[in-house]
Amino acid sequence: MKVLIALDSSSASGGIINVVQARPWPSGTTFCLVSVVANTTGPFGMNDSSTSESASSATKTASHYLENAMALLKKRVPHAKVFAEVLQGGVVGRIVAKAKELHTDLIVSGHQGCYGLGGQTLGVVAQGVVQRAPCSVAVIKPKRMATVLPNCAHGT
């Protein structure tokens, strides 16, 4: 089974990893962790040194976060194959394209993430992924995490 897990650097992503690592997974499961760094452009579509620095910094942060998440998942689900990738571009489009490329069976996404609107509203990214995904999608919500994960309800 191939599972694509969409993460950003928010605390909600820590919750997603907690939920995933607590679930029993069949042997032969492959996890692909992805984080998308949105394209950034300066005024009038121009790129200057500050926008490229900002993109580079965001890529480094995402890469570091994914390394930690990957290490945790490998430790907790030792029979699974795990790899990670930072993608650049439109968040929903890149997640959906990656799922198609890998022929994933499941996408795991947060409810809000950094791109969400907060509160009870479904995040824009989660909504877009659910609408356009080629496969089933699990949207992880934090409220019942304590029930699912009594020992690790407060992040990674």
Binding site: M70, F83, A84, E85, Q88, G89, G93, R94
Partner: peptide, 14 residues
């Protein structure tokens, strides 16, 4: 889509 650039973080089995 979007202009794409993929940055592999690392890859590992087990």
């Amino acid at each position: 889509t979007d202009k794409e650039t993929n940055v592999p973080v690392a890859s590992a089995t087990k």
